[in-house]
Write a protein that binds this DNA or RNA. Structure first.
Length: 766
DNA sequence: GAGCACTGC
C-alpha cells in the first residue's frame, strides 16, 4: 500500500507539474535529453512515470555513476511504488544484484550496463535505457553513448533518455541526432558570488590553503550565522587548514571581532575526504551545537558525491587534485590543477540548497573567465587499455574513429593498442587474439587479466595469482593512523608480512593470514589492516574464480608442501624466519614469472649506485647503452609503502637489479607503487615485442576494411549486425573527419591567399 | 627519502 503522505510528497516535487508533458515527449521521441537540477525529482519520478503510463514497457534500466546512488534511489522508488526492494524495483551493482524475475525497473551503475553491453550490445532485454547524471561524464557513460548510438539504429524502438543536471547539454542532443531537449525548471536558491578583487589563479597555487583559512575566518567574523564549506584539494592540507583555523579562532575576541557574536560564539571544524573512516565522517552531517558555526574543509568529494545539509557559505580555492594519464610515459599524474567554470558553478551551488547563500572565490573574475568551460571528461585523461579491449571484443575494428562524444587524443588510443599488442591481446594487424578474447572476460585491467590467464594455462599458480590480482584491485590495505607513535607501531606490524621478493608476495601473505585468522575483525585491527578493503578483495577473488571456472580456466595452486625442496633464496628466507607469515610456502618464481608476462612492460633497472630506477624499454628506445648517463630518462623511486623501500632492509639494494612495478604515480616525483624482483631471463624473449612495435599497424583500418563480414567463430546474427553497423558508422565518421580536415586545409589556403591579397593591396596603397 | 582527488566492473 502506498500511503497518502508518499503521494503528497511525490506531487510536491518540482517535476510533478510536467508529468503529462514528459510522458508525451517520451511517447513521441525515442531519443530524448532531459535537463533537471538536483532535487527536481527526475531520477526517482521519470522511471515511475514510464512504468505507470507505458504498458508495453517491460524493463527499464537506469544508470548511475555511483553504487550508493543506485541503492538509495532504488530503495526510495520501491517505497514510493509500494513494493519490496528487489521485486518490481531493484538495483544491480557489482557483487550485489537485488533484482528478480518480477523486476521491471532496475537502477544500476554505468559499469554494470557497460559490462552487459559487451555481452549483448543490442541490450535486448531493455525497452528503455536512461543514462542519468550524464553531465558527470564518467568513462563508462561516454563509452555507453557511443554504443547506444548504434543500438538506436538497430533497435529504433528502444527508448534512450539522457538525463543531466547542467544547462550545457546541447552537446548531448547534437550527438544523439539533434534530438529534443526537455527542460525541468529547478528549485534552488540564489547564491551571491564574490570574486577576489585581483588574485590570479596561477599565483594562488602556493597560498590558497592559507587564504582559504583567512576567508573562512573572515566569514565567521563578518557574516550572519550559517555553516561554511571550504573546497581544498587533499588530505594533508585539509588537516592543516583545520588546525590553523582552530588556532586563529582561539585568538578571537568575540565581543570585539565577531559581528554577530550574539548568535555565533564558537566554531566546530571538520575535515572530509574519501579515505577518512566513515565513523569520523558522521559528525559532518549533523547540526552543530547551538551558537556554534560549523566549518568544513573538504576535497572534491563534497562537489558531487556527498551533500552536506545546511551550507550557507562556500569558499572555493579554485583548485582540484586530478588524475591524468600521460600516454608518452605510460604514467598517471596526480596533480593540483585549476577547476573548470562548470565545477566552480557547481561548488557555489552547494551554498544554495536550502536557502539563499554566498560563495567566496579566492580568485578574480578574470581568472574565472579564463578557466576551461567544462572539466575535461575522464575519457580524455585516462588510459584506454581496458576500454579498447572491450570494444575490440565487441568486434569494433577501427577504434581510432569510433564515435565518441568527445573523442580522446588519438595518442591515447594508439598507446592502448600498442600495449594490447605487447600483452598479445591483439595481433600485428590489430585483431583480437584468442588470449585477448579470454582476457576480456575479466573485469580487470588487461595487465592483470593477462597474468590470470597465464597463471592458469602456463604457470600453474592460478590460486595464488587470483588472490594477488584481487589484492591489487582494491585500494589501500594498510591503515595509517594519525598519531605518530601508532604510525610507528603500524609500520612495525606491517613488516611481519614483508616478503623478500617484494610486494606481490607480501600481498599474498597478508591475504592468506587474513583467511587463516577467520577474517577476524580484531586480528585486522591489531595489525592496522583495513578489514573493509580485505573483504572487498575476497569478494573480487571469489568473482574472478567463478569467471575462471565458467570459462574452463583451471585453478591450480603452487603451494609447496615440503619447504626444503625449494632452492630459491634460502639465505634470505632464514633471515626472516622469525616472521611466521614471511616464510616461503609457495613457488615464488612461478608466481613472479607469471606476473612478468604483463609487467615486463613495466620493467625497471636500478641506477648503478643510487636507489633509483629507470624504465627499461624507454632507455632502450632512446638508444643509449649507458642507462645511468641518460639524462632524458625519468627517475623512478620506490614508494615508502613498498616492502622493498631501502630503509626496510628487506633486501640489499645491490641485490635489486631488476624490478617490475604495478604502476607509477607522478606527484612531485615518479613513485613506483607495488614492485617485485624480476629475473631478467624471464622477460628477455618478450622484450623483443617492443622491437616489433615499430613495424606493425594496429589501427585496424586499411587491411581489414574490405574483408567484409569477419568470421570470428560466433554465429550470432544480431551480434554481427551490431558489429557491421558500428563499423559502417565508424567508416562514415572517418570519411567525415577526413573531409573536415580537407576543408580546413582548403580554408587555411584560402585565408592565406586572402592575407596575401590584402598585403599586396596595402603595399600598393603605400 | 615519507603521503595519495574521486569513482567503478
Amino acid at each position: 500500500m502506498v500511503s497518502a503522505s508518499i503521494i503528497k510528497q511525490r506531487e510536491s516535487l518540482p517535476i510533478f507539474p510536467y508529468r503529462q508533458e514528459i510522458i508525451e515527449a517520451i511517447r513521441q521521441e525515442n531519443l530524448l535529453v532531459i535537463i533537471g537540477e538536483t532535487g527536481s525529482g527526475k531520477t526517482t519520478q521519470i522511471p515511475q512515470y514510464i512504468l505507470e503510463s507505458f504498458e508495453d514497457v517491460k524493463f527499464i534500466g537506469v544508470t548511475q555513476p555511483r553504487r550508493i546512488a543506485a541503492i538509495t534511489v532504488s530503495t526510495r522508488v520501491s517505497e514510493e511504488h509500494g513494493s519490496k526492494l528487489g521485486e518490481v524495483v531493484g538495483y544491480s551493482i557489482r557483487f550485489d544484484d537485488c533484482t528478480s524475475s518480477k523486476t521491471r525497473l532496475r537502477y544500476m551503475t554505468d559499469g554494470v550496463l557497460l559490462r552487459e553491453a559487451t555481452l549483448d550490445p543490442r541490450l535486448e532485454q531493455y525497452n528503455v535505457i536512461i543514462v542519468d547524471e550524464a553531465h558527470e561524464r564518467t568513462l563508462e557513460t561516454d563509452v555507453l553513448f557511443g554504443l547506444l548510438k548504434t543500438t538506436h539504429i538497430l533497435r529504433p524502438e528502444l527508448k534512450i533518455l539522457v538525463m543531466s543536471a547542467t544547462l550545457n547539454v546541447e552537446k548531448f542532443s547534437d550527438f544523439f541526432n539533434s534530438c529534443p531537449i526537455f527542460v525541468i525548471p529547478g528549485r534552488t536558491y540564489n547564491v551571491l558570488i564574490n570574486h577576489h578583487r585581483d588574485a590570479r589563479i596561477i599565483s594562488l597555487k602556493s597560498t590558497f590553503v592559507m587564504r582559504a583559512v583567512e576567508t573562512a575566518l573572515y566569514i565567521h567574523c563578518q557574516e550572519q550565522p550559517g555553516d561554511i564549506l571550504v573546497f581544498l584539494t587533499g588530505q594533508g592540507e585539509i588537516e592543516k587548514a583545520c588546525r590553523d583555523l582552530l588556532d586563529q579562532e582561539a585568538n578571537l575576541n568575540y565581543r570585539k571581532d565577531v559581528k554577530y557574536a550574539d548568535e555565533v560564539r564558537g566554531i566546530v571544524v571538520y575535515p572530509i575526504y574519501a579515505t577518512l573512516e566513515t565513523l569520523e565522517q558522521k559528525a559532518v552531517f549533523e547540526d552543530p551545537p547551538r551558537y556554534t558555526r560549523k566549518i568544513i574543509f573538504a576535497t572534491n568529494i563534497a562537489q558531487t558525491s556527498v551533500t552536506i545539509p545546511g551550507i550557507k557559505y562556500v569558499v572555493d580555492s579554485g583548485f582540484v587534485k586530478q588524475k591524468s594519464y600521460d600516454p608518452t610515459t605510460g604514467m598517471d599524474a596526480l596533480l593540483v590543477v585549476p577547476i573548470s567554470q562548470a565545477a566552480a558553478t557547481q561548488r557555489a551551488g552547494r551554498a544554495g540548497r536550502t536557502a539563499p547563500g554566498k560563495a567566496y572565490r579566492l580568485y578574480s573574475r578574470e581568472s574565472f573567465e579564463q578557466m576551461e568551460k567544462e572539466t575535461i571528461p575522464e575519457i580524455q585523461r585516462s588510459s584506454l587499455l581496458g576500454t579498447v579491449l572491450s570494444l575490440k571484443k565487441m568486434g569494433i575494428r577501427d577504434i581510432l574513429n569510433f564515435e565518441f562524444i568527445d573523442p580522446p587524443d588519438p595518442l591515447l588510443v594508439k598507446n592502448a593498442l600498442k600495449q594490447l599488442f605487447l600483452l598479445e591481446a591483439i595481433d600485428d594487424k590489430g585483431k583480437l587474439t584468442r588470449l585477448g578474447d579470454e582476457m576480456s572476460i575479466f573485469p580487470l585491467s588487461p595487465f592483470l587479466s593477462r597474468v590470470l590467464v597465464a597463471s592458469s594455462k602456463e604457470f600453474e599458480c592460478s590460486r595464488e595469482i587470483l588472490i594477488i590480482v584481487a589484492m591489487l584491485s582494491v585500494e589501500e590495505i594498510f591503515i595509517s593512523p594519525r598519531s605518530e607513535e601508532k604510525q610507528f607501531e603500524a609500520g612495525e606490524r606491517r613488516k611481519e608480512f614483508y616478503h623478500p621478493s617484494g610486494d606481490h608476495m607480501t600481498l599474498l601473505n597478508i591475504f592468506e593470514a587474513y583467511l587463516d585468522n577467520g577474517y577476524s575483525r580484531e586480528w585486522c585491527k591489531e595489525r592496522y589492516l583495513n578489514r573493509r578493503t580485505l573483504t572487498m578483495a575476497k569478494n573480487i577473488r571469489d568473482q574472478l574464480r567463478e569467471l575462471m571456472l565458467k570459462h574452463d580456466l583451471p585453478i591450480i595452486s603452487c603451494r609447496i608442501k615440503n619447504e626444503d625442496k625449494i632452492n630459491d633464496n634460502n639465505r634470505s628466507r632464514k633471515r626472516h624466519r622469525r616472521n611466521s607469515h614471511a616464510d616461503t610456502k609457495y613457488d615464488t618464481n612461478k608466481i613472479l614469472e607469471a606476473f612478468s608476462t604483463s609487467y615486463y612492460i613495466n620493467l625497471a633497472k636500478r641506477h648503478s649506485h643510487r636507489p633509483l630506477f629507470y624504465h627499461y624499454a624507454s632507455a632502450r628506445a632512446s638508444d643509449n647503452e649507458d642507462i645511468d648517463a641518460n639524462s632524458s630518462l625519468l627517475a623512478l623511486h620506490i614508494s615508502s609503502t613498498s616492502s622493498l623501500f631501502p630503509d626496510n632492509k628487506i633486501v640489499r639494494m645491490e641485490d635489486l637489479d631488476w624490478v617490475m612495478y604495478h604502476n607509477v604515480l607522478y606527484t612531485n616525483k615518479a613513485l613506483m607503487k607495488v614492485i617485485s624482483k624480476v629475473k631478467i631471463e624471464w622477460v628477455e624473449e618478450r622484450l623483443k615485442l617492443f622491437e616489433k612495435l615499430v613495424s606493425v599497424n594496429l589501427d585496424g583500418d586499411d587491411d581489414e576494411k574490405n574483408e567484409g563480414q569477419e568470421n570470428e567463430n560466433d554465429d550470432d546474427d544480431d551480434d554481427d549486425k551490431f558489429k557491421a553497423v558500428t563499423n559502417i558508422k565508424i567508416e562514415e565518421n572517418r570519411i567525415m573527419k577526413e573531409e573536415e580536415k580537407k576543408n580546413q586545409r582548403l580554408a587555411a589556403v584560402e585565408a592565406a591567399r586572402q592575407r596575401a591579397i590584402h598585403r599586396r593591396a596595402s603595399n600598393s596603397e603605400r
